[in-house]
Amino acid sequence: MDLYRVQDEVIEPAALHEVVLADSDGAVTTFAGTVRDNTKGRGTSFLVYDAYKEMAEKKLKEIGDELKDKWEINSVGILHRVGQLEIREISVLIAISSPHRKASLEACHYAIDRLKETVPVWKKEVWSDGGEAWIEGDISAPQKTEA
């Protein structure tokens, strides 16, 4: 089955794998985005993610629907974490199941790129030198042209 969720709780990859997997599948492709300890060499202490939860979950589902139009896949699961995240923790997890591997591999790559364009989630970096800032994505991204 499909699952689209913005959550405070720690993301568990094995649980999402089970959610998307059906007996007829031959592959599950999983992508995890994790918290890196630096940005271009500047040390990161932790990240804080904020989201427009209801709209973000709706946009995640739209991505899933788009994937199903483009590829022969079975189920889509996308989880995004919010709140304070420590180094190594998972911020986003995508799991896509398909009867054959090529479809879910391609769909997964597309899904994370699309997520970064359209889903209303924001990352604040808190650096080890005491600075902090909300990171803003590319404003020319296709969220502007969305139908």
Partner: peptide
């Protein structure tokens, strides 16, 4: 909860959000 242009006419009870360039993932 849908991206809309600036000339959109608003109605009683609408929920409007100002969304900085997104940086999820």
């Amino acid at each position: 909860q849908e991206y809309m242009p600036r000339d959109t006419v608003l109605n009683e009870g609408d929920e409007v959000a100002f969304i900085p360039p997104v940086s999820g993932g």
